[in-house]
Design a protein around this nucleic acid. Structure first.
Ligand SMILES: [Mn+2]
Ligand SMILES: [Mn+2]
Ligand SMILES: [Mn+2]
Ligand SMILES: [Mn+2]
Lengths: 229, 229
DNA sequence: GGCTCCTTTTTGATTAGTCAAAATCAATCT
DNA sequence: AGATTGATTTTGACTAATCAAAAAGGAGCC
């Protein structure tokens, strides 16, 4: 069995590479894992010996097929556990990430399957991050961010791409959860500000940096039966 | 924070000592943890340095107040997790022990509290093992075993003291779960056999060794409203 | 007392994972 | 080309946990 450290390295390589052929630089990997670069190099070389990654010295690292399989399984555990913690145990969505960071290494594939069934085979976790399927398919749909949307049309929040407890607490307080509908009322590129509004609620101003963490999809205006909230 | 190894040592010292003043011999501890005796000695000395145990060289080891506190918390996690796996995820009670052996080190105190509430503050786990309270109280009630009970009176199974998957599967198949009611119909000390019967079902013969793993309490014959099954 | 046997401790090695700091590489700038 | 600079790798050291095998204790027996 892969150790906890090995699972963490593989998962972070997966998260840091857009497509599976892209090389992840050692610096980025070391940063994501909070280790010094030398440590990452050492570990990556040993992962390469085990056939879990391919190491291009001085360029970066990428997952092999087997490494990707393991990484997706860990990520699936992480996101299903997060969903369980929020949906069943009613935990604060800003705390579940830390919790899942440990649990992803402790649950067996059988518990994973049963959790999945209990939760009704969810497609995404509380932050809107896609949950890899049991077969290892990971949705890679590309969404716009609030930072790049023009004022006007209704937008549904689909994902918050920023795991920090601080940002998530902020989003929670402002009601910015996946599934909610908003529209941009003002874009001030010079000032670096975007203003949002949910229905007739009070306006919410975000920096472009913050707005870049909110992924949205355009909402077609009342076509077919309404879905979601 | 205590490492996984430290938590395992403390939990097993707790499980191996009847009362908290009793010394656990190094051999017994090493055996329970599946390590060689020298490893246990080394680890116990380092636990003693941290103030978690008291080591009497060549005699044994016992928990300090702080060590006991940590050990009880781990045991509480273990047994609540087992209960969750059986009650909520409907897992086979013969598999949950192995599973909980990992999870007991991965869940936070907050998740522990929420699990406890979700399960309705259970007093014992699926095997009938008592769950330590949040305050660190561990029921130490002494029960008779089927091996020592005289033929005749109705007995309620309260606990199975044998964690092996094999024995638990056997007990499951025979319907020997905590809460069920049986009576001894025959005791053959010479042959080392005890025969049980559940209501009018077919008789079940057990070796004295096996019968010693089944803890029971006498059932007063229909006094007050019936409780349990 | 001296011997035997079982338990415990000690000693010497090993593995996984990590850091600090020096060395190396390669791209860019003058 | 030669120098500068930032990323990466190497080297040496350390901690936690473990095993194998030798050494030490101690209880009972002759
Ligand atoms: Mn993790
Ligand atoms: Mn998430
Ligand atoms: Mn354990
Ligand atoms: Mn149990």
């Amino acid at each position: 069995m892969a150790t906890i450290a090995v699972e963490n390295y593989l998962k972070h390589i997966l998260l840091l590479s857009r497509d599976s052929s892209e090389l992840v630089p050692m610096g980025a990997l070391a940063g994501a894992l909070s280790v010094v670069p030398g440590t990452a190099t050492t570990m990556v070389k040993s992962l390469a010996d085990e056939g879990l990654v391919e190491h291009r010295p001085r360029c970066g690292v990428r997952l092999t097929g087997e490494g990707r399989r393991v990484a997706l399984n860990v990520l699936r555990k992480h996101r299903l556990v997060e969903t369980f913690l929020v949906d069943v145990l009613k935990m604060d969505w800003s705390k579940v990430h830390t919790e899942a960071e440990q649990l992803e290494h402790a649950i067996s594939d059988e518990v994973l399957d049963r959790l999945d069934a209990l939760l009704g085979h969810p497609q995404s976790d509380p932050h809107g991050d896609p949950i890899p399927s049991k077969q290892g398919k990971l949705s890679s749909q590309v969404y716009a961010t609030v930072a790049t949307c023009l004022a006007g049309p209704n937008l549904r929040v689909v994902r918050i791409t920023e795991q920090s407890a601080e940002f998530l607490q902020f989003a929670e307080k402002k009601g910015l959860q996946p599934g909610t509908t908003w529209r941009v009322t003002e874009r001030d590129l010079t000032g670096g500000l975007v203003t949002l509004r949910r229905g007739t609620g009070k306006p919410l101003a975000l920096s472009l940096a913050a707005a870049g963490n909110i992924l949205v999809e355009p909402l077609k205006p009342a076509t077919g039966p309404a879905e979601g909230e």
